[in-house]
Design a protein around this nucleic acid. Structure first.
Lengths: 220, 220
DNA sequence: CAAGTTTTCCCATTATACGGGATTTTATTA
DNA sequence: TAATAAAATCCCGTATAATGGGAAAACTTG
């Protein structure tokens, strides 16, 4: 560790002792270190206090009860986009998503829902940093084209992607907004393409759009 | 904040900026600060890597499927004792326990299961720090009496408490051990007293004991 | 039990975090 | 919209606290 971090051995010992002392690390079996109890308690606090997580839980549960598949709430931080709540009807271990997982900001329905409501300068930044990926995935060979597509998404209030992130998987997502038009996250739904007929997709899109709007209102 | 923490205003601004920078805090709506995205991703890592959590999940699920009620895995850290995995058949919001919640080390079945396998000096310390509570709850007016009781628990490999922590609630717990006799946590089961007849209790105790032993072996 | 290894402890040095104050930005009111 | 007040950010010299070297202690291993 000392080598890897570029600190002297004494310093590494002290660091480890301090981190353990404060519960951020813990000595696991053998001579291994694992993340400590503080992580659990911080997550517990977060879960109990974060309004998005709190309000999102019953919603994702209801969606999955109604339509099967997987439903998730994702939260946008300054630069990261993370799944903060999810529910699935899939058997244990087969989930495609999980709490805490980083979500892509470029491709997929959830990314699109975010992009559509991002202030221009933030969108530009994302576009520039990932120009190659945008071009490769077809949507937006230039920035103008992207904007046109996003304007549609914005008008619709919900968006669908089929096989854009993973082949054979459909994603449906709607933005969660606070205030007039500030996006703080998305409500997403995911299922296998062949499990969802055209009629079903429309139905789910309508529901996701509505529930995301309810969530938005609860937070405002 | 500056007043409360005893730091100058500049320092507090810098702290907040740094913490946000690293994702430990995030600026919430308004001028509030909330725990940041790093908490989610750390918890995610922990969940994916911690063997106790990993191995515990299917077990608590199966127990609840079989017997209803609530099942939990608790992990003992140096000084803290925390629920790291739980499953319940109770409707949302009515759970008595949750992931991340600190568990008591003095009273209740889980506490007893830990105490019974703690090295002497650690038990002494806990006893001394909480002598009043031990005495008040009847078990162990002196250290000798406590030891006698714990010896029984240890022999049985499982223990039951009725209304010891919360009136009308039964707890059943067995220690999770690695190596010859090092306790790292407990497997617990909780339900309403009136929902469990004598026969049922015996049945569950046997199962909890067995599954805790399986868990122990998986970890060793 | 001795040789080797790991861990802890201590202290002088240096680097970096701190707070005061200047500067910029945001909010408030007339 | 301008003027005033308040809040937030930035900058830099000083002082404090983190660092690494090395000695001592504890633990492994042959």
């Amino acid at each position: 560790m000392s080598e890897h971090l570029g600190f002297s051995r004494s310093t590494v010992y002290r660091y480890l002792a301090d981190l353990c002392e404060h519960g951020l690390l813990a000595q696991g079996s053998g001579n291994a270190f694992v993340l400590g109890p503080k992580i659990f308690s911080l997550e517990y606090r977060l879960r109990k206090s974060d309004p998005l997580t709190l309000a999102g839980r019953p919603i994702v549960q209801s969606l999955v009860e109604e339509f099967g598949g997987t439903a998730l709430v994702n939260r946008l931080f300054r630069d990261r986009f993370i799944c903060v709540e999810f529910e699935t009807s899939l058997p244990e271990g087969q989930e495609t998503h999980r709490r805490g997982q980083p979500m892509p900001l470029v491709r997929g329905a959830n990314a699109r829902a975010i992009q559509a409501h991002l202030p221009r300068h933030r969108l530009v930044r994302i576009y520039e940093e990932n120009a190659a990926e945008f071009a490769a995935s077809g949507l937006g060979r230039d920035f103008g084209e992207l904007q046109t597509k996003l304007r549609e998404v914005r008008a619709a209030g919900v968006c669908l992607s089929d096989g854009e992130l993973r082949p054979g998987i459909v994603g449906i997502a709607a933005p969660i907004l606070v205030g007039p038009d500030t996006v703080v996250g998305t409500l997403g739904f995911v299922d296998r393409s062949d499990a969802l007929g055209d009629r079903r997709r429309k139905e789910i899109m309508a529901q996701v759009r509505l529930t995301a709007r309810i969530l938005s209102r609860q937070l405002s």
